[in-house]
């Protein structure tokens, strides 16, 4: 079987075959033979070149999360991931002017008004989550074009809060 996974926006092909020795896996450089034993739904014990590893592999929306030796890897399925990353990059251009909530929380203060000029790093709003106040700052200088939320509102991560425009 052949699969492709997206790792850091790179497409990596993986070929895997069941043999009498175990699983033969081709990652491009060299073939390896792996003895795999599933311990539970999402946890697999590997013996690879005589060494023993425990991997946690959990399916998520468009791929897998894999935890191995203290590292967390996200392995996406190519098609969806490409679209996602392209959209992400397109968004990055106007990103500095669109001020977003960095995490889910509650808007507890808006420090600016529409039409107001702001400095870089000026605090525009305060979002509270898990009892800590987080100041939302302007990534660049500009003018407040539109305020998109109101005080008391619950917001999700990446929800646009305030739109800035170049002076």
């Amino acid at each position: 079987m052949n699969f492709e996974f997206m790792v850091d926006q790179k497409r990596i092909p993986v070929a895997i075959e069941k043999t009498s020795q175990g699983w033969e896996i081709d990652l491009g450089e060299a073939k390896v033979v792996v003895d795999a034993h599933w311990i539970s739904e999402n946890c697999v014990s590997l013996i690879l070149e005589g060494k023993s590893y425990t991997l946690h592999v959990v399916p998520v929306d468009n791929g897998y999360l894999c935890y191995v030796q203290g590292e967390l890897w996200s392995l996406g399925r190519p098609t969806q991931d490409l679209e996602y990353s392209q959209a992400d990059q397109a968004g990055a251009v106007g990103d500095k002017l669109k001020v977003k909530a960095p995490m889910p929380g509650k808007v507890i203060k808006i420090n600016v008004q529409e039409g107001e000029a702001v400095r870089e790093n000026q605090t525009l709003a305060v979002v509270e989550a898990m009892k800590m106040e987080n100041e939302i700052k302007a990534a660049q200088a500009g003018r407040v074009k539109k305020i998109l939320v109101s005080v008391g509102e619950l917001v999700d991560a990446d929800r646009p809060l305030i739109e800035l425009e170049e002076e």
Partner: peptide
């Protein structure tokens, strides 16, 4: 090294998923 292992893990999981789709019921969810 981590990336190599993660890819192996994901490929194995994909194979397992394929096998399990053929089974009538799934025993456990994540």
């Amino acid at each position: 090294e981590g990336q190599r292992l993660a890819l192996i893990g994901a490929a194995l999981r994909e194979m397992k998923q394929g096998r399990e789709r053929k089974r009538p019921t799934q025993l456990m969810s994540a």
